[in-house]
């Protein structure tokens, strides 16, 4: 249903607009003068100055896979992230862990795990949905490449970015 909003009644002076325009000009000029006198600075000189150290804990940068302190890849390729990913940036091909592998009891791991960083929207749903605490949004945000292929992070690259994550629940290592 359409809602009709009453326009505010303007006084004569307001109808004239001129004072309001002047007020606006004064404000913008005020800002200009302030910055010209080097009173305030809101931007930084990006490549030289970075805010990496000031990133909040929950910053959502590039998603990456992590290993635990025993070197086990945490991802078991349940493909939930692939399912939840809104832009469908994730592609996983699972495989069985061969019996001779140290972690063969985990049974399943990704053979290929690709995140298309051109598609990724850094929403963090993959991290949230992951039942194995295997994928995390890291603080890397400057993801660039010369080709589209380069922008697809493969498993190796994802583990490189992710690194080792300690102190998570390691149910596979002890309980199973």
């Amino acid at each position: 249903m359409a809602v009709i909003v009453e326009r505010p009644k303007l006084s004569i002076l307001e109808k004239f607009y001129f004072p309001a325009i002047m007020k606006g000009l004064r404000i913008t000029l005020g800002h200009a003068i302030r910055i010209l006198r080097r009173k305030k600075k809101v931007t930084m000189q990006y490549p030289e100055e970075k805010w990496d150290n000031n990133l909040p804990e929950h910053y959502r940068g590039a998603p990456a896979l992590v290993t635990d302190e025993h070197g086990r890849e945490r991802c078991v390729s349940c493909q939930l992230c692939e399912f939840i990913c809104p832009p469908r940036a994730i592609t996983i091909i699972p495989e069985e862990i061969p019996p001779e592998d140290q972690w063969s009891k985990v049974e399943k791991r990704p053979r290929e795990f690709e995140i298309d960083m051109i598609r990724c929207i850094y929403c963090g749903m993959c991290e949230e949905v992951c039942p194995e605490q295997a994928i995390f949004l890291r603080k890397d945000y400057a993801i660039s490449g010369y080709t589209r292929d380069e922008m697809v992070h493969n498993k190796k690259k994802l583990y490189e970015i992710g690194g080792v994550r300690e102190g998570l629940v390691n149910k596979w290592n002890t309980l199973k």
């Binding site: 800002h31 200009a32 302030r34 910055i35 010209l36 305030k40 600075k41 809101v42 000189q45």
Partner: peptide, 10 residues
């Protein structure tokens, strides 16, 4: 430049 200055940018 002026717009930046007005908006307290660089």
């Amino acid at each position: 430049r002026v717009s930046a200055v007005i908006q307290e940018r660089v």
